[in-house]
Write a protein that binds this DNA or RNA. Structure first.
Lengths: 190, 190
DNA sequence: ACTGTATGCCAACACACGTTGACCTTCGCC
DNA sequence: GGCGAAGGTCAACGTGTGTTGGCATACAGT
């Protein structure tokens, strides 16, 4: 969605290196502390190039978070495994793609980031919840509960870096959080 | 720990109003966006007073987060109710005290905030987990799991403001999260 | 080969920030 | 009642920020 396959313009490699550097900086430092100058230096070009290609710092940030996050078709998964599989998929996402780290770090102080985060979870988790309880308030509640546990683990593990949370193996996380997510999605309303 | 009971100096009221304004700004905007100038304006004084009384912006922030967060004696609670009671206590804390919001907003991009957050949870949740499984790695893991769920709910409910999470009643949150926390603390290792 | 356009760098702007020091004003005390 | 200190204001400094316009260079089309 962000780029085409074959570079048509000579500058596409520069555009991409800016975007890469921006991804890393926003993910590591958040919106305010990630400066245009630092991003430009990482990309090996002049700060003014950032403005030329992305208009403004805000425009650059918009480009960074404008990516599709697609969870593999969860519709095909056995009902009893949904919790564990979902947790596993999100672990993959956090570890192999910086966009969620970016959204978490930025969304906490930046409304645009928060809004995008809401969109991502509405698009990914809500439909899943609706599979079990149908559309409606109850599905939204369950999706929010799942989001709270998944994002909370990401927070303590990848952002705040609580030692014990960071030390958990992937299997540990799935074994502990899987049942929680499973319950939020499928248990009868308390 | 932060202040005495009776104001001895004439300036104590000013000191306090600066601290109040700082609490609100840091909690709402995070460290970078909360400017000394804005805090001073909220407190109705000159920015230089902030420097006189707290030395620097960093010193002011240190004063803001230097508060004791005491959970009522959880040792006296029936073992089966620990999850629900703990969730309830944390809800109270989040809603009647801004320091946790501050720590969450700041800890995401500021190492001092993250460190303080780790300390708070080590001091509050770790001892609780040790009640059930004794000191050791397993207790730390369980405390981290509890932290992930409690902080995750705070994140989506008070910071990112996901609609469905913010709309949950207090009873809903306790009913859903209570069993999760209970399980993280007391269930046998998976 | 010439020309126009895309690509890039450089220097500078305007602004907001944290911080400082000089200057008033008000209070408490001998 | 004068005097020293505490409380408070004001204007300014230095720095880093996002952003802009002008200028050099490399490329592509004819």
């Amino acid at each position: 969605m962000t780029d085409t396959d074959a570079p048509r313009r000579r500058s596409d490699v520069t555009r991409a290196s800016i975007l890469d550097a921006a991804r890393a900086r926003f993910a590591a430092d958040g919106y305010e502390r990630a400066t245009v100058r630092a991003i430009a230096q990482d990309a090996g070009i002049d700060p003014s190039m950032v403005m030329r290609y992305y208009g403004s710092k805000e425009g650059l940030f918009a480009a960074v978070i404008d990516v599709e996050l697609v969870l593999p078709d969860l519709a095909a998964i056995p009902v009893d495994d949904v919790g564990a599989v979902l947790v596993g998929h999100f672990l993959d996402l956090w570890e192999h793609d910086s966009v969620l780290q970016t959204l978490l770090r930025v969304g906490v102080t930046n409304e645009a980031g928060a809004a995008r985060m809401r969109d991502v979870f509405s698009g990914q988790i809500l439909p899943l919840a609706q599979r079990f309880v149908g559309a409606g308030e109850d599905a939204a509640r369950r999706a929010a509960l799942v989001a709270s546990q998944v994002l909370g683990m990401a927070l303590v593990r990848y952002v705040l870096r609580f030692g014990p949370a960071a030390d958990l193996t992937r299997a540990d996380v799935v074994a502990w959080l899987g049942p929680t997510v499973q319950r939020y999605l499928t248990a009868p309303r308390p």
